[in-house]
Amino acid sequence: MLPLDQRLATHRRVTTMTLMILGLLIFLGGHSVRIFAESWRQQQIANRGQSTWKLAYSVVALIGLAIAIYGYGQTRLDPINLWFPPMGLRHAVALLMLPAFIMLVAAYVPGNAIKAKLGHPMMLAVKIWAFAHLLVNGRLSDILFFAAFLVWAILAFKAAKQRSRQQPAAPQSTSLAATLATVAIGVVAYALFAFYLHPVIIGVPVFG
């Protein structure tokens, strides 16, 4: 039998990993309704109303995200390392995250050509973010966390493209000003997060 301290450490690892996975299942599961149960979603909206659905959806998403982040943070206190990525990959991640931020902003700025061209820039941003972070994290919890988001983003993007083919949206006008503003805001948001917020919130410097 393992010593008590090793048994307690194993129990703590299992508990925190379970919390993280549970949170991911709740958060990504809620965001997967449109992928796997669009007709059920539409029925719920028809029966309960758009506002009630959005409220319930938001509450479930926030609860799941909070549990996932808490569990993920706890796993980093006692990590299980599967491999040790070379430091040079951090430069690749820093480069990949710049277009990810621009695509994220493009999902919200009206009339920009990036969204008109890509269709679903938010999901593409999540893809890049998750893939980039898989490159530089060798802990088991990191791999599970970012792989879950990557798989979800791939499936969500595919489902969204299929819906767009079935129900084509009317062409939207774009402007150079909106596109330039999207890029500028994305670059500023990237710099702010990379140089200031990432070290404070995540505890890991992007550069240096």
Rank of each mutant, 00 (worst) to 15 (best):
M123R: 11
T182N: 10
Y72F: 15
I63K: 01
G138S: 01
S39R: 06
V60P: 02
K127C: 15
N112A: 08
D5Q: 14
M17V: 07
H31E: 15
H31D: 12
L28F: 10
A113M: 12
Q167Y: 06
R13Q: 14
A194W: 01
L55E: 06
I102A: 04
H198C: 09
L89A: 06
I45H: 00
P171K: 11
L192T: 14
P168T: 05
A194H: 06
G138D: 05
T174H: 06
N112M: 06
A156V: 09
L19M: 15
V93W: 03
A160E: 13
P3Y: 13
L28M: 10
L28C: 04
A107N: 05
W40N: 04
F157R: 13
F131R: 02
A68W: 01
L155V: 12
A148L: 02
V136P: 07
M123Q: 14
P85E: 05
G73E: 09
G71M: 05
Q43M: 07
M87Q: 15
A130S: 12
A169N: 09
K158D: 15
M17I: 05
L144N: 09
G30T: 11
S173I: 04
F149H: 09
I63E: 00
L98P: 01
R48N: 13
V59W: 05
I45L: 00
A56N: 10
Y196P: 04
R12H: 14
G88S: 11
I45C: 02
L82S: 00
W83V: 03
G64W: 00
Y70L: 13
Q6W: 11
R48F: 10
G64S: 08
L65I: 12
G29E: 06
A100R: 03
A153T: 05
G186N: 02
P168F: 06
R12N: 14
H120N: 14
Y108W: 11
H11S: 15
T16N: 15
V60N: 02
F149P: 00
A147Y: 07
M103E: 04
K161Y: 12
F145I: 04
M97R: 03
Q74C: 08
L25H: 06
R165L: 14
L95T: 14
I45A: 00
S173K: 09
T75C: 13
K117V: 13
P205I: 07
T15V: 07
I63S: 00
A9Y: 05
Y57K: 00
F84S: 09
L4K: 13
L144G: 10
R41T: 02
S173Y: 02
I80F: 00
G111N: 04
P171I: 15
K115V: 04
S141L: 08
F84Q: 10
L24R: 01
A94E: 04
A106F: 01
A68V: 04
N112I: 10
Q166V: 06
K117D: 10
R48V: 03
R7A: 15
A106W: 02
A177I: 13
F149Q: 02
V187F: 07
V206Y: 03
G29V: 09
A9K: 15
